[in-house]
Simulated scan of single mutants.
Amino acid sequence: MKLEHVNLTVRDPKTTAAILCELFDWQVRWEGESIYDGYTVHVGDTESYLALYAPPKEIQNAEESYYRAGGLNHIGIVVADLDMVEARVKAAGFVPGSHADYEPGKRFYFEGPDDVEYEVISYA
């Protein structure tokens, strides 16, 4: 068994998709109208993806995820070249932090679009 996708509510699925495709070399797998008259864009690779959903009305940020049952705390993305992705993250205007070198790999985190935290990991 494997994880196929995660569905996130975002303000602008097309913009978020473009950023994530640029950072992680992903592709748009599908996009279109979706549940509750919203709009969704699926980004990822042939194995897994993020579904980026926007409802038809303006949304607000909820309370801190680490203190909310069911909160999304971060999304971990495995990459082959950590330094290259970190350079892309910086070029896109995001700030990498919480760097760690641990067995079996290295990682950093950044707050991406819609205040979603991403952990970028390399086992190379």
Rank of each mutant, 00 (worst) to 15 (best):
V6Y: 10
F108D: 01
R107G: 10
H42S: 08
T40W: 06
H99Q: 08
Y66E: 11
Y109M: 09
V85H: 04
A54E: 03
A18T: 10
M1G: 02
T46G: 14
I75E: 03
V85N: 01
T16P: 00
A92S: 09
G38L: 01
N73M: 06
Q27P: 07
L8Q: 02
L3V: 08
Y123C: 07
H99A: 08
A69E: 11
Y53V: 05
E119H: 03
S122A: 09
H99R: 11
E47P: 00
Y102P: 03
E33F: 10
D45E: 10
I19K: 02
V89W: 08
F110D: 00
K90L: 11
G97R: 15
T16G: 04
A92H: 07
P55F: 12
T46E: 15
Y36G: 10
I121L: 15
L3M: 11
G32Q: 06
W30E: 09
A100E: 11
V28T: 12
A62Q: 13
M1E: 00
G93I: 08
D81A: 10
A18Q: 13
I77C: 06
P113W: 01
H99V: 01
T46Y: 12
H99F: 11
A124D: 14
L23Y: 05
T46S: 15
D81P: 08
E119N: 04
P96R: 00
D101R: 15
V95F: 12
A124I: 12
